[in-house]
Design a protein around this nucleic acid. Structure first.
Lengths: 350, 350
DNA sequence: TTGTAAGCGTTATCAA
DNA sequence: TTGATAACGCTTACAA
């Protein structure tokens, strides 16, 4: 165990009282310059560090937030966490990371199973109360309405990458509608008018909004919308492959996949059929995961601003913690724009 | 702020003393069955949670470890963290994650700049002392000798994915020598005798050990070793591309890349030259990053058992914390084997 | 300018 | 079987 020094000991070494040491440590003015110097000297020498527990117990404030993630293994989570922590650092807050490991434990079987989620979340909430954190940042694994929090749980909170049911917490999400819109507009500008879509699962928020944006762009440019060209996948490579088969048969010249993994599945199919990607058929993904740069040809995709999400969410949370009256932010919903990454999987139609 | 209930209040509600409540909470036998029932009832009703700070202050033990990561954004880190946290959970420990964000702040400029690292680590060490964690799990971003810890810092510690200089802390790393050996052996078994290597940076531990293993396999199988066929890259895609050009000119039939990104660079080059990967030239990577499955053809590579590393490291740490006398583990070095993932980038030579 | 004393929420000790 | 009391390390009124 490491030797630990306390205010009392510092006080003894300097022949002053503990309160004087405390006053110095907390930068209060009611202490003689000569004493201050002497004590500061000793503090430096001994490498004294205040006991954080005692401090927060006495002050009734922990200057600590907890970051609850649905799964640290989800690709989107680490960058959000990293950026949120960076902001907390800057603001003098500690962040304790709590990992629910939802995917790790149940893959996707927890999506519609509130009991599973609560069996993990409730103990964590207990723990937050026990640690007396000042606030909670909840980072969802994928965007949806989130409403697992008991009414009795009254800590300031912010939800990142998810939407608080009933506007209970401020939420930070991406602007999926704009995302779908931007992709459609780009494809139309490249001359495509028969565009297939491999969407995510049907009831998913990302899916709905991106589709809305997609349709909007079509309307704007007077390109007819054919619902038969919209297929629903499961976000995985295999379903990209599967749905590509159908869409190619329908004669599409471009395919918009709602994530990069399904786009890779489309690549698989096109290659198998001897079609040249980005020439015979154009492909666009979503996410800008690392793999998108490694596909051949490199995939044009729409980047999710993960770090911005994390920073913004932490910002909202700390604002809320420090500025108690500002209850008005409850229903706030921040939508961050995605950024198109133009690469080699889309060809201009002659 | 959330309403918080204390032992004192519970005690009042039950007409008993705080000590009795405490005794019940801690499962001590010296309390009447009737009282116990009554108090437990109230505890359940009120949703009482002990104040963690007060508890650890009194008990002089925090049951909390800190996981210090060099950068959460490094691909290898989240799985290690996730597995380590899972183990801590199981053992009733809290883990607080501290993110140094070294790559985030300085890319690779901190490798040989101990001052930069210390400027981040020293405050963290202060913080660990302040929080009074029971131990530290240090997760390096890449394997090397690590010796940044001041002598005064005496907490139990374990290093994952790095080696403690002077055997101060038990360390968990991968068996790079076996990794290099397995790859060479596999390629030789497939009939390759003129094998190029795109290594990592020259002075890197992974590089040295994998090369050792590689040579050992060559010797064993009486395949001549030609040092000119070993090129040093910088772990990035571009250097894979660059060195591939040289190696192909030397007439190699297979290339062993010391990570998947450089292998992707090799793909880039071979494709550009119209060579068929896995047929004209075989390629093997290292890491089994997600992208390796998405390359075409899918890359044969050697998987780093990241989760096992995390679990093993947490295990060693908690053992050490709970079993104080066991100082003997100081110099322990655990080497975990990588596992070959056979895919489509290697062809059997006729 | 400095020190005394009380209290934050627990738990361990000891007495009743 | 229960309860009073002190202590963990710190901060903060308030008194000196």
């Amino acid at each position: 165990m490491c030797t630990v020094i306390t205010v009392k000991e510092i006080a003894q070494m300097c022949n002053v009282s503990p309160s004087t040491v405390s006053n110095i440590l907390n930068g209060r003015p009611n202490v003689g310059e000569e004493t201050r110097q002497r004590v500061l000297e000793v503090i430096k020498e001994t490498g004294y560090q205040p006991n954080y527990f005692a401090q927060s117990m006495r002050k009734q404030s922990s200057k600590m937030i907890s970051i609850v993630v649905e799964d640290l293994g989800e690709f989107s989570t680490p960058p959000i966490v990293e950026a949120a922590m960076a902001y907390c650092d800057d603001m003098g807050y500690r962040a304790i990371l709590m990992n629910m490991r939802l995917y790790d434990k149940w893959q996707k079987d927890w999506y519609d199973d509130e009991d599973k989620v609560k069996s993990v979340l409730l103990p964590l909430i207990q723990e937050m109360q026990s640690i007396r954190v000042d606030g909670m940042l909840y980072i969802a694994g994928h965007c949806r309405h989130i409403d697992y929090f008991p009414k009795e749980f009254k800590l300031p909170g912010v939800i990142a990458y998810g939407i608080s049911e009933g506007g209970r917490y401020p939420s930070v999400v991406i602007d999926d509608e704009k995302g779908g819109y931007d992709i459609a507009r780009y494809l139309i500008e490249q001359g495509h008018t028969c565009i297939g879509v491999i969407a995510g699962s049907d009831n998913n928020l990302h899916t709905r909004s991106r589709l809305d944006g997609f349709c909007k762009a079509l309307q704007e440019r007077k390109v007819p919308y054919d619902p038969r060209l919209v297929r629903y996948g499961d976000w995985k490579r295999g379903s990209g492959y599967q749905e590509a088969a159908y869409l190619v048969e329908q004669g599409v010249t471009a395919i918009f996949c709602m994530n990069d993994s399904m786009a890779a599945g489309v690549y698989d199919y096109l290659r198998e059929k001897g079609l040249t990607i980005g020439q015979d058929i154009s492909v666009v993904g979503y996410d800008n995961k690392e793999l998108s740069k490694y596909l051949y040809p490199a995939l044009t995709t729409n980047e999710i601003p993960l770090r911005v999400i994390g920073q913004k969410a932490a910002e909202l949370l700390i604002d809320h913690i420090e500025d108690k009256e500002q209850e008005a932010t409850g229903g706030m919903l921040v939508k961050l724009p995605c950024e198109m990454r133009y690469r080699d999987s889309v060809d201009k139609l002659k």
